[in-house]
């Protein structure tokens, strides 16, 4: 019903774009959720900051100024406009470090999501198509991974691999992967029972084609939502690992690491912990809001005509 009305509505108005663009339709649903739109704009803002970090940051993030350690933000007595958000115990500019920190967060989010999603989607596809015994083996392994608290598992993995940002990313990707496996497998199983898959089989399609051309494109909506949500998870987990000293190593201006370095100064200088913490909070909140909007817009079950 919805299909018919939407196509008849758009065809007469605009002959050039007779097809109601999928993106346009998506945006119509997405925009209904105000929180999601705000989240989206905040996300874009952080993305721009991350991309242009060297141009925007007034100082080099690791250059130290012994003359100005623990300078408070400009609105407090003793603060000045040279260091708008103050400096840390080593005299490094907080604002520049936060701006550069955005780069690491996005790097982490992107790399972790790509790693986890690629591995998870492939494994999930295999599990969905596989005979029952192989499916059972794969899913039980995933259940085992899921049953261990994710941060603990990541900690163990980092302890084995050695503490560095790259290893933290790998560890978190492994921890997040089972969610993709489950999601993909469930989506594949619903799609497999549909007639278009059978007709592709009757046409002689072989397994790789069935997997990637026929079924996978129809499973993407929930996976995209999961990707958005695990992006924020990855940022949060890497910050947590950094805070525990198992992620990015100083002097990297990673937000979690910044928190950990400044921990002992919490009482004397509130700004050294508050700003990185706020940065993490706002980014993660924005991405989660955006993910919710994505789900509303992409999940056909929540669609109103």
């Amino acid at each position: 019903m919805a299909d018919v009305s939407s196509s008849t509505n758009t065809t007469p108005t605009d002959a050039a774009t007779a097809r109601p663009g999928r993106f346009k339709e998506f945006w119509r649903y997405f925009k209904e959720n105000r929180g999601a739109v705000i989240g989206f704009y905040v996300f874009v803002f952080f993305l721009i900051v991350a991309i242009f970090a060297p141009l925007l940051a007034p100082f080099d993030p690791s250059s130290q100024n012994r003359a100005a350690t623990l300078v408070p933000p400009f609105w407090q007595s003793g603060g000045n406009w040279t260091y708008p958000l103050g400096t840390d115990p080593l005299g490094r500019d907080m604002l520049s470090r936060l701006i550069h920190g955005a780069r690491y967060s996005f790097l982490v989010g992107t790399v972790v999501v790509i790693l986890a999603a690629t591995g998870g989607i492939l494994t999930g596809l295999v599990a969905g198509f596989a005979p029952k015994w192989l499916d059972t083996i794969i899913m039980r392994i995933m259940d085992i991974i899921l049953s261990i608290p994710s941060l603990l598992l990541a900690l163990v993995l980092v302890a084995i691999l050695g503490p560095s940002l790259l290893n933290a990313m790998i560890a978190i990707a492994i921890v997040l992967q089972p969610h993709y496996v489950r999601l993909t497998r469930a989506a594949v199983m619903t799609e497999l029972s549909k007639d278009y898959v059978v007709s592709a089989k009757v046409a002689g399609a072989r397994l790789p084609r069935l997997m990637f051309v026929t079924v996978l494109p129809n499973c993407l909506a929930p996976i995209i939502v999961q990707a958005a949500l695990s992006f924020s998870n990855a940022i949060l987990d890497v910050a947590a690992l950094g805070f525990l000293g198992m992620g990015a190593q100083p002097p990297t201006p990673e937000w979690g690491t910044m928190l950990a370095e400044a921990r002992e100064f919490i009482l004397r200088a509130w700004w050294v912990v508050t700003f990185p913490g706020l940065a993490i909070l706002v980014t993660v909140l924005a991405i989660n809001l955006m993910g919710d909007g994505l789900r509303d817009a992409l999940d056909p079950k929540l669609k109103r005509s």
Binding site: K194, D195, S199, A200, T214, P217
Partner: peptide
């Protein structure tokens, strides 16, 4: 070749 009952499920 085959034609199915449900035209909504049989096309990708």
């Amino acid at each position: 070749q085959i034609v199915f009952q449900d035209p909504y499920g049989s096309l990708n």
